[in-house]
Design a protein around this nucleic acid. Structure first.
Lengths: 196, 196, 196, 196
DNA sequence: AATGAATGAGTTTTCATTCAT
DNA sequence: TATGAATGAAAACTCATTCAT
């Protein structure tokens, strides 16, 4: 009965309003409690309008997830200068991750909940890996120049991202101030963790 | 130990079966998709029987959360020897955290989802902080003896736990082998991260 | 997620009330216009109760169809005496069909609409053929004794059933009186149609 | 010819495409399952375009019904020669009915479902009777010349039409071959049924 | 005339919770 | 204590219809 798996997003503004509504509501009430009626109300459209853009609730959330994931990973490498030193580049990336977590709390809250709550579509799953490939290459380069520990590269990557996340969470919850000291301490920990 | 949230915990076996069902289903299908009917079926009781043990769905999940959280945190300090060196004690704790994540994946999956998806009851929230207090004290002691970095203690705690988590996730997903090398590299990273 | 294809009818009275509601509403408003809320109201239960008995609207209608079809075909051979003459037996069957159509108009109305409106489940489809087998044998017997025309037996069966239906429809619509004359004329036409 | 039910029948091709879509979809999925979106897609127009031609869904179906009904009844008397013998004329009509049912299965499927499923508009209802009037007159003529049974004329009409339908259904379903024998047997049954 | 987009008013379906036994 | 059955409230989803372009 249905032709296409994904419907054409017609009005980009509405699609973005829908995504923003999902982020907000997931962060505020928890993804499990977010209904299509909530999303529609927050996005300023009728519930049935959501079905003009998406075939089902699952489709909607999956698309929003992909949008958010792409945006997030893109922010990780913002202002990255390939000519800079390894430590400088990692500091920038680490800061980008912390910034992203703090500035886009709602998006991050949604991403983490959706990641757990439903089996991601294969497309979404592959997406994550594709985006982190350049980051892995940077780390491998650091290992070759013997600046970083000779451990499995995914462990290095997980260390950087995990530590950035922990710092950001502490800041978001008010356990740490969002200042230069926090950034300095946080990255020092990160750098000491991975350097050779 | 038991407050009024739990109504008539006569049959401990049933309570455990219910908790086990919740862990399994949350890990398999995502907590948001777990219905009381699912839990009852998996636990081998009738749906209405759940109300013999709990006042509501929220109560049930909250109790299961507290059980899991307590068990988890308890495992963190298993075999801890207060007389041992700081590094030894942290290595043991780090390994305990990794072990717990690998051996009790379903429980951990539930804990993380529940933590995100709904506002924890105050009781549950306080629980987490109470359990980690001794760990924080250990770290503060390490700072006083100048073995650890002079940064806010929560940052040290988050570092240890975050890094243990990252290692365990890589192992669980098959990206790293579950062997001595992994443990050695993982803890080396952790120790370098926090040591002065 | 679901265990059984067909749920166990728990309260036979309710199942019958549901079926009766479907017959009544299908006859009154047309099957396409019958909603689950209508059925529930007419049957004196809550809408959600329908889902205690059936997995979906389709399942419900399919089960009601099978019930009605079985009941109908059973009525066709009511009081049939295998020892009676061919003509007597056919007259009885023909009358039974006419009676059924007149007395169970609602059921018949539902059967005809459901037959058209949705692709019947294979089970339902097979049912029809199984029930008419004895009738076909009777006709074949009549051909062997050269009392009936030597034409394909399904054509004889369709003739008897089709003519009984036409008579019943004329009576139901008030175009013919429901009396002995009508029965006599009607069966005379039928007998002349098939006799050798 | 056109009343106010039809709004702007400018493009006859589109109107025909719409009707064809209705026949096809009603036969394939059942009339109850046919949505305006389905019809539009099958007819190659936008859904809202249907409202250029019709005021509502009901109007659309009613118009399509009238078209189909007229076409069908017209086919019944195709090549009818008022000068021919009664039996010849009835044989022709009987064959025309069988032909129509076999050749226009989709149209017939739609007609029967629409006839059952919704109360026909008065116009549509009257149409059916108007079309069959000449046929009734032919039968009454046959009774006057004592060639046909002295029974209520509607019974004779129903007999002829009902038997033609049954034969056609058996052929359509593959239970009978579409050959001369089938036609001969079929009409023999019909003629024996009604002749005096 | 033709249509893509939007929607209100419904429909089916789900599920936590209650209740009689 | 345990449960099968029932249900109200709310969820997802559908679709005929409207409207700006």
């Amino acid at each position: 009965m249905y032709d296409d798996l994904i419907m054409k997003p017609k009005d980009e503004k509405k699609v973005e309003a829908i995504a923003a509504a999902v982020y907000l509501l997931a962060a505020r009430h928890g993804l499990a409690a977010v209904t299509l009626a909530d999303i529609a109300r927050e996005a300023g459209v009728a519930t049935s309008t959501l079905y003009v853009y998406y075939k089902s609730r699952e489709d909607l959330l999956d698309d929003v997830y992909q949008k958010a994931k792409t945006a997030t990973v893109t922010r990780y490498s913002r202002n990255d200068d390939p000519a800079a030193s390894l430590k400088s580049r990692l500091r920038l990336i680490w800061n980008n991750i912390v910034d992203n977590r703090i500035e886009n709390q709602q998006q991050v809250a949604f991403l983490e909940q959706y990641y757990h709550s439903e089996y991601l579509s294969e497309t979404s799953c592959a997406l994550g890996q594709r985006m982190t490939a350049p980051f892995l290459e940077l780390l491998v380069g650091g290992q070759k120049s013997e600046q970083l520990k000779q451990v499995p590269p995914p462990l290095l990557a997980a260390t950087v991202m995990g530590l950035a996340k922990e710092t950001a969470v502490l800041v978001s919850r008010g356990h740490l101030p969002d200042d230069e000291d926090t950034r300095a301490s946080g990255f020092q920990i990160c750098w000491d963790a991975i350097r050779a």
